[in-house]
Amino acid sequence: MAGRIIRTSKVEWIFQIVNNVVMVLLIMSVVMPFLHILALSLNNGIDAIRGGIYFVPRAFTFSNYNEVFTNSNVINAYGITIFRTVTGTLLSLFFSSMAAFALKSKTLPGKNGITMMIFFTSLFSGGLIPFYILLRSLELLDTVWVFIIPSIYSTWNIIIMRTFFNNIDVGIEESGKIDGCNEFSLLFRIILPLSKPVLAVVGLFVAVGHWNDWFSGAFFVRKQNLVPIQTLLQQMLMSQEALDRIIKESGGASGYIFKRQVTGESLKMATIIVATAPIVCVYPFIQRYFVKGFMIGAVKG
């Protein structure tokens, strides 16, 4: 990396300082609530009712996490989630990149019509009933594919990919054509290797979408062994909250008297951590594709 030695002017110094201060403030505004959540998640739920817990747990316990991990389905649920996230992301990237590549072509007849047709769907939805009936008649309900097939494409992903493909130097494409590439090999041999940042972004979005989706697990599968982790967490959370609600509505006098260490509130904090941690761990691997100048190696190397 030559040419790095730049004389920094006064203005730039001030800018650097201001910039760093802003970043530090931003980090604090995020880290503090997260520490608060972490502290609450590591505190006895009943004790936490008393309040006063900010960044350090008072009655330290793993009971909130135990509540999550002693559930007999949790391993299986993680398996389902990992399967759908990996498979779903790969399939999405594969199919979306083909669609985006085709739609990028300036000369393809009917391209605008298809783009519009794709875009149109992002503004209207027929609601849950017809969608459910559709999944049922395709016999997707109660299979693991109900998590994957209905979310292979999304308008947003296709159009974002198309935009990035458009930015790729036309010259590279032309030289590929001269080398006798057909359109398939052009996409897979030349365009995609040059598009790692966008693949990383879209892949991240799709993966996080899969990871966070609890809805389809709740409505579209009945078998408990097909339930993904987020649905399971949601279920646990709701049943704790249902208990809280019984206590609220009838003053608790409906007759059930068991000891709890966990409340809906404390479990909620633990589920945030459980659901966020894996994605946070994955991010650094994706992040390296966003480093400035990443592309140069790809082109020159």
Partner: peptide, 26 residues
């Protein structure tokens, strides 16, 4: 969450609740 916290600290002289609220997880 906040009202229960306040009451657990005795911050309300008067409050309102159910008859059984002082014998359940609150």
């Amino acid at each position: 969450t906040r009202t229960q916290e306040d009451i657990a600290n005795g911050s309300y002289a008067m409050t309102s609740m159910h008859v059984h609220s002082q014998t359940w997880d609150t």
